[in-house]
């Protein structure tokens, strides 16, 4: 790619007017996401935060191409997204490993498909490099059932970065892990992202995760008709150290802003959500 037709760094990913609606046979379409706009810079880590069911995962799967859009466009590095592909690697909430293959085999599956021109040696190097990068040098040839949840998710991350994606999509990648394992994995993933300057989009509902890992947090309103509620820049320099981040005075301020936004969304929702958990609130609605 020559420098001239290289996509401008500040508009590496452009999402404009993105809409997702599901047909409803008994009335108007259910609009989950409407008019979602977001621009991501090259190498930036952006997180989508919101309550569960707000449509943040829908946005991510549409960017991944796993879910068809109902309107609007997604452009990644100058190319319109139309269907899934390894240039937008996804790490799913569940590790989604193929249980009949070892960790190595799981990573190799994608590598083989994405680097058809590379020789066996190079592919093996790539797989080993990625597994080592996520701290699995000793567990390469184990099957998923022999790995803990955290280790399985590391394999998921290794599989994604081995594809050298233009955009890495993390869909609540640590949502099912306990807080300690989550911290470890955040460190590992952030280190890898820093090293290769991978443009990343993280869907999460964990405020600490968003503040610690991201350059920018995109707060989404609660659906239906979810859209970007607020954008918040996280000013910490990368690479980051967790202890320094926690000690910094802004940390709790940023955290508070996110929490307040979420709380406000919660109050907005409670009045409107039909399937609310609390029956009294449900009855009040």
């Amino acid at each position: 790619m020559t420098p001239e037709d290289r996509t401008p760094d500040d508009k590496f990913v452009e999402i404009s007017g993105l809409t997702k609606a599901y047909p409803n046979p008994y009335g108007d379409d259910v609009v989950v996401v409407s008019d979602f706009n977001l621009t991501i810079k090259r190498g930036e880590i952006v997180s989508l935060i919101g309550h569960s069911g707000c449509g943040k995962s829908t946005v991510l799967t549409m960017v991944a191409g796993l879910n068809a859009t109902s309107g609007g466009g997604i452009v990644v590095d100058g190319r319109e997204v139309a269907g899934p592909g390894p240039d937008r690697a996804v790490v799913f909430q569940a590790p989604c490993l193929l249980p009949w293959m070892t960790a190595f085999g799981n990573v190799l599956l994608g590598v083989r498909n994405v680097y058809p021109h590379a020789d066996v040696e190079e592919r093996r190097d790539m797989v080993e490099y990625c597994l080592e990068a996520v701290g699995l040098a000793d567990a390469m040839h184990k099957r998923p059932c022999e790995l803990s949840g955290g280790m399985q998710q590391r394999v998921g991350v290794a599989r994604a970065i081995a594809l050298k994606p233009k955009l890495l999509l993390l869909d609540e990648p640590f949502g099912r892990l306990d807080s300690l394992t989550r911290m470890q994995l955040q460190d590992v993933v952030l280190r890898t992202l820093d090293e290769h300057a991978i443009t990343t989009m993280i869907v999460t509902h964990d405020v600490d995760e968003a503040v610690f890992m991201c350059d920018r947090v995109c707060m989404m309103t609660t659906g239906p008709n979810a859209r970007v509620g607020r954008l918040l820049d996280i000013p910490f320099q990368r690479p980051r150290r967790r202890d320094e981040v926690i000690e910094s005075p802004e940390y709790f301020e940023l955290r508070a802003q996110l929490l307040e936004f979420l709380a406000a969304q919660e109050h907005a929702t409670v009045a409107s959500r039909a399937d609310a958990d609390d029956p009294q609130q449900c009855a009040a609605a």
Partner: peptide
């Protein structure tokens, strides 16, 4: 999940 992986890897 496995189908999605297959689709992502094309």
């Amino acid at each position: 999940d496995h189908t999605n992986v297959a689709r992502m890897l094309r």
